[in-house]
Every structure is written in C-alpha cells, then in structure tokens.
Design a protein around this nucleic acid. Sequence first.
DNA 1: AGCACGCCGACT
DNA 2: GTCGGCGTGCTC
Length: 730
Amino acid sequence: MSQTGQLFETRVVPVLVPLPAERPYSYAVPDGMEVAPGSIVQVPLGPRQVAGVVWDGATDRVDARKLRPITRVFDCPPLDATMRRFVDWVADYTLSPPGLVVRMALRAPAAFDPEAWIEGIEATGALPDRMTGARERVLAAASEAPAWSRSGLAHAAGVTPSVVDGLIRQGSFRGVRLPPPPAVAAPDKGYGRAELNADQRAGADALSETVAKGGFSTTLLEGVTGSGKTEVYFEAVARALDAGRQVLILLPEIALTQSFIDRFHARFGAPPAEWHSDVAPRQREKIWRQVAEGRVKVVAGARSALFLPFQNLGLIVVDEEHDPAYKQEERTFYHARDMAVVRGSIGKFPVILASATPSVETRVNAAAGRYGHVRLAGRFAEAAMPDLSLIDMRAAPPPRGRFVSPVLGKAIAETIQRGEQALLFLNRRGYAPLTLCRVCGHRFQCPDCSTWLVDHRLRGQLQCHHCGFAVPRPEACPECGTLDHLVACGPGVERIAEEMLTDFPEARTILLSSDLPGGARRLRRELDAIADGEADIVIGTQLVAKGHHFPMMTLVGAIDADLGLANGDPRAAERTFQLLHQVTGRAGRSGGRSSRGLIQTFQPEHPVMQAIASGDATRFYEREIAERERSGLPPFGRLASVIVSANTRKEAEEHARALRRAAAEDGDIEGLGPAEAPVAVLRGRHRFRLLVHATRRSPIQAFLRAMVAAAPRPRGSVQVQIDVDPQSFL
DNA sequence: AGCACGCCGACT
DNA sequence: GTCGGCGTGCTC
C-alpha cells in the first residue's frame, strides 16, 4: 500500500461489466463522485470504455496497480435492488456469468444519458402588428395546447413553418424547452371496459383481487381460445395501473401483432410500449429510458422485455405461457416464463400465466396448489365453438400423390365459396420430407446425420433440418446417374400449397413458413393481412397456431396431425396436443358463424387425437401427468442439458466425451443420462446436447457444476452452455 | 464480448 | 521480405 493510499482512503466498489466475468470487477471511486449499488457507470476496460453497474457485496482484493477509476456516473435511474437480485438469481440458476446476464439489462447504450429536451415555442399573448388569415389560424391552433414544436404547430394550423417564424419574430411566440415526448401515451384504466359475462367477471375479479392484495403469487389463467382470456387479464392490468404500478405483458415474439396492440388500445385508449427485435434502435432506447424513469406504464414485449429496468413493476402477465419460444436457447439459456415467476417472487408482486393449453409443469404447479388456478369455462358465444372431427386417413385416403382428403377438399371449396377463409396446418417445412430415385431406389440423406434431406422447391435446395446442411436440388441421381427420375415422397407445406393452387386456381392462397424470405417483420404483416381478409386459403406450419385473431377463418384442416407423435421426445404428446388445440382454436372466433375443424390422422384412436376431437383438455392433462409418473419421468424439473458447441463436429464430440468421462469418474456426479442428442449445426457451429437429470438429493445445478468443473477446460472454439429445465420456484 | 498479441501461409 | 489468417488470453 503506497503512502498516498494510506493518507487518502480510496473508495473501491464492485462493478458488474457486460462480459462473461464470473464476478464484478473492482473500481476506484474518484474523490467527489457519488455512487451507490445500482448506479450505472462508465468504466475503463482494457482499451475501451464500457457501461457497468455498481454491484452489491464486498470487492475483490485487487492489485493496486490494476485498479482504475470509474470514468463517470450516468445521469440515469439506478438498477434497483430487486433487479440486482434478479440478475444474480438468473445467473446462479442458469449457471451463466452474472456479467452476461446484466448485459441483457443494459442493451440500450444511448439510453443511459437523459433524453434531449425539445426546442419548442409557447404563445406570449402578444398580437402581431399585422394580422393575416394564416396568422389567425396559427394563433387559434396554438391555444389548444400550452406549448408546441415549431413544425408541429405549423402542421396543426395548416400553414408553412415560415408563418410561425414570422410570428416568433413579431414576439407572439417565445422559445421554450420541452421535456422529451413520451414513448407512448399513458393508458387510461377506465377507457374501454369490456362487457364481461359472469364467468369472465368472476375470473377478472379473482385476478384483480390478487393484484389488489399485492405480494407475490402466481396464477394460471386457463381458458380455450375465444374465452376472453385477454379481456380478463386486462382487468388485472387495470387494477395494477390503478395502484400506480408498472405492468409487463410477455408474449411470444410472433404473437406481438397489430391485432394485439389494437385490442390493448381499444381497452386502454393508448397502445402499450412494444419491445421486440423489430423495434427500431432509437425507439428501443427511448422505451428503455422511460421504463427506467417509470414514465412508461405498460410494456408488451417478447422474452427479452423481462430484463427491462422497471422502477415500480407490479404485475407480469405471461400470455401463451406454454409457448416454447419463451425458452432462449443461445448465450444465456433461460425460460422467460419461469424467470417471470422469479421476478415476481423477488419483487413481491403477482404473476399471471395465461394459456388455452398450459404446459404440463404449470398444470402440475397449479394442481399442487403452488399456483392459483382461474378457469374460463367457455367461449363468448357458445355457438362459435368449432365443430371438430377426425378424418381417418386409412378409411378415406386422398388420391395417390395428394394429401388433402376428399372430405377436407370439399369443405375448403364450400368455405371459400361462402367468402370465408380456410386454414391448412401442416407442421413440416418445405415440399417433401424425402426424395428418392425411381430407378435405383437411392434416398437422399444428410452426410452428417441419419436423416433424409428435405426438398425445398422454393429455394431449389435439399436441406437437412437437423444440421442445416444443404445442396442444390439435383436433376440426376448421384447413384445411377439417371436424369429426371427423382420422386418426392410425402407432404410439406409447399406441396400442400401447390395442391391448393391446382384445385383452387382462382383462390388467393398464402403460404406461411418460418423459412420464407422476409423474416419476422414480413410474417407479422402477412398475419395482419390475413386477419383483414386478404386471403382465402392459408397454408402454414406451426407458426399459424400462435395467438392470432382471424375472424373470417371458419375452417381449419390439420394435415398429418399425428406427425409429431412419432419421435422419441418425452414432450411429444404434450406438444402435439398444444399445437392441434391452438390451431383448431383459430376457427370460429366470430360469434354466430358456424365453423369446423377437420383433423386428418392415421391413428384416430390415439389419446391425443381423442382428446383433441372431444375438446376435453382436462382429461388429456390428467392422463399425461399420470403417464409421466408411471414412466418414472418427473413431470417437470430436475432435468437439464449440457450443450457443447465448437467449430468442428470432432471438437464438440471430444469435449462431450470428456464431460461424460468426468461424470463417470466422479462418484458425486450422478444423473448423466444415456441420451445424447445428435449433433446440430447452428450458425456454423456444431452442437452436442447431453441430457442430465438430478437425483432427489440436491438441486440439479450442483451436478452440472461438478461435472463441468471436473472436465478438462474447453480448448479452441469449444464452448459449454447449460440449459436447465423448468422447476418449481417456491 | 471485444481487442491485442502471436505465430504460420500468399503477396503488394 | 511483409500482410493477415484466427487460436489464446485478458480485461478491475
């Protein structure tokens, strides 16, 4: 310790910086600088300056020569204690460095400095020397509000800005500084209260009471599509706003369409602030800042909105809580629904999980009494319930090479004749799942995986859906060289679209698939267009199942409905049930109009098909939970995977083996399952997934920590990430 | 995550 | 002889 160090006590604080550091770094606080835990600061890090957060707890003992001073404190509301605890909790639970978690909360670099004030003008009351018609209009328009922007006033008065300039010179207006305009208008909790039926009223009252009571709780809001879940939880939102709290509504990214925003707007007189990947950077920063200042009251966002720096969060609603899109499977692996519950628990406020088809783990939590359970019995209008039936494809097959059965084809014809819409759902991208040579029988297979290559005609490629391998569609068989004798086997959405174009050439047909060009933005636009009636036949993969409002959709057909039941995934039945239930729920949402759901299946006797046809979700869940118990699989929790990724398959494989060996040699590491998902390629990196399950003795994180610690340190491009399955948080 | 340092292949 | 590939290691 140097003499100056002894004479002038240097204050040292921990600062969490947004990089994969296991713990906060230590920084010196310059004389006269005020910082406290939560302060957002700028610190030197190597050659650059980064934003970090002053953290809690003791600082690392660090070499005085390394210690560098904080550059500045941003004029920005600090991250509050609950947010800091939340970051630490998520880091611990997901076994990721806290620095990477805090990074998710700091993703709005320009938002740490206050927004600039706007140059505006206000009327002085002085009249100009010479009055003109244009000047009169400007003065009249100006009286509508205390202050204006120069161009805004000109626009409102219907004159050019030079008229306003003239009035400024005449002294009728003076310059004034205006606070930055709000990102969104304030919601009005009493604006467009919906008419609720008795059932919905009871549900809304129960949720509102939970909100009014305050404190942490989790409630499952369960009700079929069209039962008015949204309107019901809007009442809880209104109650939280009434108490002066902020509200977060989480939605799967794809469900954040204009129609949701419109419904919110109709209820609260203003749209919510939107937070998803399509929001422009400037707007993102504005929203981040105003959320931190408590000026934005309601955010509707995708999973990343969970890390927004709310000042006064009082309610989180997780809509479509079963949706797999809530699980982030890159960088920091987390499940937004579960982390929402954790955030509620730390912040001591209620969380509402809404779904027509809850995940099994949420059902189990509700059944065990850990979560409250509010059920909405029926639809708004009972008549709007779709009439569901199974089509036995063994009894009534379509002609060879076709996949839409005559029964469904007839229903489509009738539907579009009436000017209504038909939706065909098939959960398989591309044109055909298998291509073979009619001469020698050669099947096109992925060189790295044991899977067929899927024919994608729109892209002119054969693709492996497992690892991303792709080749141009060949014309000749690579085995026997014969030209033009390759044949596509089985259906994909592209092929169904082709069938529809052949059968209904005059109909407006839209194909929706995640691999079509244009990305999320275009998809949202197309979905809104469909809702506006700009299509007759819609063919789509699972993305059409996700919470859209299609009032004209009176027929839903599921092609190959039992597709998902074949693979060995322990959640196959649950996923298939959820998908089919959601997709058939798209039908019959406009009251009065009769609607149908036709499900093509090769195994109509399967319990999932029976449950779908009967519309009895409860029976399905009870059976599924019992089934999992019988098979020894926990209904949820105590499961995890270790994901090893590397630039080459060999590297990834080698590290996966090392982890396996470490687990085998260390007696304390139990529960490394035999399963190992085949390698997948994601953005050029080869990934291995090892399944891990814990025994009853300790939380699964302990196994994972021990296993990763015992294995050799990753070398080269190798990276290890952990994905912990949903558990109970109470 | 950046960014610099460092050690092996094709070029102004 | 250098420019530059990305493997390795560090950042208070």
